[in-house]
């Protein structure tokens, strides 16, 4: 479904990604871990189409087609969803309107019938119930004044509404309390399997107890320095990242 080949990217003059390769097949869940500043959000941002980065080398294929030429909205319509590490506040636009516009843009692009206000609302309420979200949040301006955990849950709510094929979750677990973590993980797990794929970026093994990954990768200094199964995450929990970084520099 997604194939990243030798991706190099920089922001301004500073190189951030220095040759990332990763293959994600339909039905798989991949976890990406790694130290702060190693490039995880950069990678996620590039996949969603953030313009701050310049790809200097390599390519990204999504369902066999080049992804990097598509605008962010085209990617969303093709089924890519990024849950932001830092969701944006948009005063003056209600969560409901925002999401209905987004959903209908995507449905229109897919040749599906647009939802009217009633259909949208009943659909939204069902998803909110499942995520045990306060229904009042849907009438409030997007993320404005939301608590840290509410913002993260709102990202997952959007994901559930937009029903992506490839969901990339950038530290969606940080800021969630233990109950919320379980609920959010439950939301993610409903997307699992079939033709969908999920990439979770996290610092904590704990999330991976709920969303058990098929593969775990470690991104350090702009490169994937280790890949393995869920046991790798447990090992990282014990030993930290330094041993991997040392191994990598010894190799270089």
């Amino acid at each position: 479904m997604l194939e990243i080949k030798d991706l190099h990217a920089r922001a301004g003059e500073a190189p951030i990604l220095k040759g990332v390769s990763l293959r994600v097949n339909a039905g798989e869940v991949h976890a990406i871990m790694g130290p702060n500043g190693s490039g995880k959000s950069t990678l996620a941002g590039i996949l969603a189409g953030r313009a701050d980065y310049e790809v200097t080398q390599g390519e990204v294929l999504y369902e066999g087609k080049s992804l990097l030429d598509l605008s962010p909205e085209e990617r969303a319509r093709e089924g890519i969803f990024l849950a932001f590490q830092y969701p944006i506040e948009i005063p003056g636009v209600s969560n409901a309107y925002f999401l209905k516009t987004a959903l209908n843009s995507i449905r229109r692009a897919r040749g599906e019938k647009e939802l009217d206000a009633m259909e949208f609302l009943s659909h939204a309420k069902e998803k909110m119930r499942f995520l045990e979200m306060d229904e009042a949040l849907i009438q409030r301006p997007v993320n404005e004044g939301f608590s840290g955990g509410e913002k993260k849950r709102n990202e997952i709510f959007q994901m559930a509404m937009l029903d992506p094929k490839l969901a990339i979750l950038d530290e969606t677990d940080s800021g969630l309390d233990i109950d919320a973590l379980r609920i959010v993980a439950g939301g993610v797990n409903t997307l699992r399997g079939g033709n969908r794929a999920i990439v979770v970026v996290t610092h904590y093994q704990r999330l991976l107890n709920y969303i058990v990954p098929d593969f775990v990768h470690v991104l350090a200094k702009g490169r994937i320095v280790a890949s393995g199964d869920k046991k790798l995450a447990l090992e990282l929990e014990q030993r930290g990242y330094s041993w991997l970084e040392e191994k990598e520099s010894a190799r270089a």
């Binding site: 969603a48 189409g49 909205e73 990024l82 944006i88 948009i90 925002f98 959903l103």
Partner: peptide
């Protein structure tokens, strides 16, 4: 914010109008 809206499938011009309206 423009990127946030676009990443949800909203066309760029509409995203800008929405934020302008906001």
């Amino acid at each position: 914010a423009v990127f946030y809206l676009r990443s949800r499938g909203i066309e760029e011009a509409a995203a800008r109008s929405l934020l302008t309206y906001a």
